[in-house]
């Protein structure tokens, strides 16, 4: 079931487009914003609302890497693993994060605080290495200040 608020937001997107189903990516993003992730039940509810089959919705949901089909923690860390960050040593940042949080890419901490994911180039290569936590971009990441950075996200 979609909430009244979710339906309102989805229909706002539908109104901008000539076909109802064209709003499916927006709908997935809206659901994720409200619920943190997109469950099977959510896929079915979106499908009913947009006159699509659940399989069609899921084929789209599983294509885009920033639609989460599994639950995530309160904060999602997206660590850039592309070429400029590779040259500038993102692997050291990854090792430090693994040690501090005791999780690897694709995992969530036991206290549900952080999910750690790799992400393709974040488009700030002149300030590599870079990462995003939720909607915040952090650049020129240094091992010494990593604890400070993480402590802002409780």
């Amino acid at each position: 079931m979609l909430s009244a608020e979710e339906i309102k937001s989805i229909d706002h997107e539908v109104a901008k487009l000539p076909q109802k189903r064209a709003a499916v990516i927006e709908a997935l993003k809206i659901i994720q914003q409200h619920r943190g992730w997109v469950s099977d039940e959510s896929v079915t509810a979106i499908a009913e609302h947009l006159n699509m089959s659940p399989a069609e919705v899921d084929s789209v949901a599983t294509f885009y890497n920033l639609i989460f089909r599994k639950p995530v923690g309160r904060h999602v860390i997206l660590l850039c693993d592309s070429i400029s960050c590779y040259v500038m040593g993102y692997k050291h940042i990854y090792e430090a994060l693994q040690q501090k949080l005791q999780i690897k890419f694709g995992e969530t901490t036991a206290d549900q605080r952080f999910t750690l994911l790799p992400n393709a180039c974040l488009g700030c290569c002149d300030h590599a290495p870079a990462l995003m936590i939720n909607n915040d971009l952090h650049r020129d990441i240094k091992l010494e200040t990593l604890d400070d950075l993480l402590s802002k996200y409780t």
Binding site: A22, I25, F63, N65, L66
Partner: peptide, 21 residues
């Protein structure tokens, strides 16, 4: 968007805008 490098390709971008893969 919702991620994926492919979206930068002109025709793939059109599919993404239409709500497709």
């Amino acid at each position: 968007g919702a991620g994926r490098y492919m979206c930068g390709e002109e025709t793939a971008l059109l599919n993404a805008l239409e709500g497709k893969r």
